[in-house]
């Protein structure tokens, strides 16, 4: 992937890093492109010496965001490039995601309501988890359509003493 570059792989100090650490990734908005980008993101985050659950949660949130772009923003047309910027700032991982695909429906973020789990096997939901997970695990979620560009920003709070299973800080 020629577009991919990592500008800073220097690990920050242990515990809560005070320094800004940045990384930029560019990759095709396809299933394979997203998977490779997530694997790369995982390695970059490992280099930040965070607790493993913080890396896992960030990877999950970004997987949902990026797969959504690959699946919907470029559906039925030629694939484009997604640009991802990561910034480790204090107790947050801040992500900016830019693509030139179609806008989100209504140019609004989906509500991401919690899927309803009933007792009937036949009625269980097979989808609708993505935006719920994104909203549940991130804050300061912000979407803008600017010209022909989608710009999404989100912040993932790093779990310290909190519940590592559910990502509650």
């Amino acid at each position: 992937m020629r577009q991919t570059r990592i500008t800073d792989r220097t690990p920050p100090p242990r515990l809560w890093p005070r320094l800004h650490s940045n990384a930029h990734l560019g990759f095709p908005a396809t299933g394979v492109g997203v998977r490779r980008a997530l694997e790369k993101l995982h390695r970059i985050l490992d280099g930040f010496h965070l607790r493993s659950c913080n890396v896992e949660i960030a990877e999950l949130v970004l997987a949902e965001v990026l797969n959504n772009i690959a699946k919907h923003a470029f559906a039925g047309g030629p694939s484009g490039i997604v640009r991802l910027t990561l910034c480790l700032q204090g107790r947050w991982l801040i992500f900016t995601v830019i693509d030139h695909g179609r806008p989100l429906p209504g140019q609004k973020l989906p509500r991401g309501a919690e899927p309803r789990i009933g007792p009937e096997r036949e009625q269980l939901p097979e989808g609708g988890f993505g935006w719920f997970l994104i909203r549940h695990l991130s804050d300061n979620l912000c979407y803008r359509r600017q010209g022909n560009m989608n710009l999404l920003e989100l912040r993932i709070p790093l779990v310290s003493q909190g519940d590592c299973l559910t990502g509650e800080p």
Partner: peptide
Amino acid sequence: PPVSRVLTLTR
């Protein structure tokens, strides 16, 4: 743990 987490969060 990462697989467990997705199941827990979505109930």
